[in-house]
Amino acid sequence: MSVPDPAAPAPFDPAAFLAAARDGHAVALGLRHRGHGDDWCELAIPYDRRLVSDAVSGILASGPIVSLMDTACTFAVWRRRGAQRPHATMDLRIDYLRPARPGATVVGRGSCYRLTQRVAFVRGTAHDGDPDDPLAHVAGTFMLLDQWR
């Protein structure tokens, strides 16, 4: 007979997590959930003129895209770890292949492609409509702050 373990964490649900969030940076940026799998999560950031780095061109600043990718990669790690567990971003590198088109929603997909006892390795891409025409690539690592079990 199997008895549910009350201590076992529920699988991490990125959509429910974002829906329940009442404040914080993800809410301020208006991040939306688009999809997820066992080791990946896709989020979107709607275009917002408050987030541009240049009022004339209307091109999004880099920071919102870093936030989008950091969050998507975080959710990917939690999907792969099976639950929302403490970790800290150790480093994140973003290569901007081209500017995001002004007015376009930016979609970011992060995946956790390797998990060790203490480190999660992530990578991802961002696009603004065509996944085959990415605007940024990211690579990063997270330090896990509790034991894998």
Binding site: D23, G24, H25, A26, V27, A28, L29, S53, A61, S62, G63, P64, V66, S67, L68, D70, T71, P86, T89, L92
Partner: peptide, 25 residues
């Protein structure tokens, strides 16, 4: 500000990255 928070009690890394970007510019 509340809109800069990440995990409980800490700043969102993306907000810090944004601050660094503005400092660079």
């Amino acid at each position: 500000a509340a809109g800069l928070g990440g995990a409980p009690g800490i700043l969102h890394g993306g907000a810090i990255a944004g601050l660094l970007e503005i400092a660079a510019i």
